[in-house]
Write a protein that binds this DNA or RNA. Structure first.
Lengths: 229, 229
DNA sequence: GGATGTGAACGACTTCACAGCG
DNA sequence: CGCTGTGAAGTCGTTCACATCC
């Protein structure tokens, strides 16, 4: 028999209770980023059509999404940018800082570390781990690389809650288990493997090979549709 | 008014004609990778339950997906691994090599270049581009970094069809336009922006900020559900 | 018995269309 | 009149359940 997580939630009933779909949450991130950019340009008010056009989403979809935040919109006017941003950050849970660690310090980890913009959005990298003895002690962006066996200690001491797994596929499950044991509450996985985690730990996977293959498929399709094999 | 691409397809009727959902295609990639691993371990035949359990998918879903490939399964037995792999590669369009270029040679590009596994799956990096004069001429993995203004020429000469955009958000649209003009047929975008491309060019975007925020949201949710704010 | 393929039921997400408010 | 919020309809994707075949 096969088992697929049925998305447990016997909620007690928090203030704003509605369950958001994964798709809505992802669009929330897009709205947030675009609104921040609009605000920087001096916008006070934004309409669903405006937002939708900028992000390639229908205006109806935008309104449905934003309605989850409460009645922020004013008919005839639009949404106040500043309030929307605040509501989005709160609902996404990024109206605070998330201490994050990275395991596997290769080029991908460096790309994440050098990208100003995560910190800006509420994520702070507080520790780096690698299994390679040669890398221990090296610094990347003012952060020293620590050995795996210090993980539990360092994660606890620095209050890290999120972990990024950027190790080869073979090591990914072991590393994830270690992160879970260290008390991490969510994992962003870049390794090309399906991870098994306890349901209390959140998981988001980014599989670059899958995305590249998706792209090849789409191009392949376009070809077929237009005659050329 | 808002406009969302309605996924054009007035298909003439290719051999296997059914439209595959994005989700199915992504699972195809997962099936393929897992089957290749099983085959290496000597497996001859695989059941939908087996595949599903390994990948966290229901057996029914696996069968639905694989049925798109024709009737490869044998009741009471399962699917022949070798045939499934061949069918998947063909249907995904990776029963060939895709010449691919990367624009923006930072750490992310290097991560992709160093990752053995893309080449294995049919992707070959054939050119690198960067706007930084200091990088021109440098070699990464036996590939020399070329200036942007050589893009059209080099893409044509090397027959590149796919492009990876790994530049800052501000430059992404311009770079994509250049790739499109150079004749690229599909773009994998890592820049945190929504790109506008002609419908003849396929687009897959990987937005790391969105994924991290999705993770934060999930952890945030778990928290709320379990009392702790 | 064990496993596939598939209609039918279900559920999730999106778009439509319009009442209602500023 | 412009724009929001939302029920209703529509579309898409997943799961169930079972007839069917080795």
């Amino acid at each position: 028999m096969s088992r697929a997580e049925p998305s447990r939630s016997h909620g007690n009933g928090s203030p704003t209770d509605t369950r958001l779909s994964r798709a809505t949450v992802q669009r929330f991130s897009l709205y947030l980023r675009h609104l921040q950019s609009l605000l920087r340009e001096g916008a006070q008010t934004v309409s669903s059509t405006q937002l939708g056009d900028a992000l390639g989403i229908t205006d109806a979809q935008v309104r449905k999404d934003l309605a989850y935040l409460g009645n922020l919109g004013q008919p005839g006017i639009g949404y106040p940018a500043r309030d929307l941003i605040a509501a989005l950050r709160q609902r996404l849970g990024i109206d605070r800082t998330w201490a994050t660690v990275i395991v596997g310090i290769g080029n991908l980890a460096r790309a994440l570390l050098h990208h100003r913009g995560f910190e800006q959005q509420g994520f702070r990298f507080v520790a780096l781990f690698d299994a390679d003895p040669a890398k221990i002690g090296q610094k990347v962006n003012h952060l020293e690389i620590s050995p795996m066996d210090k993980m539990a200690q360092i994660v606890a001491r620095r209050g890290a809650e999120l972990g990024v797994v950027a190790v080869p596929a073979e090591a990914a499950q072991k590393v994830s288990d270690a992160l879970v044991n260290a008390g991490i509450r969510g994992i962003l996985n870049f390794a090309p493997t399906v991870l098994r985690l306890p349901p209390s730990v959140a998981l988001v996977s980014v599989d670059l090979a899958v995305q590249l293959e998706q792209l090849a498929f789409l191009v392949h399709l376009n070809r077929e549709d237009h005659g050329e094999p």
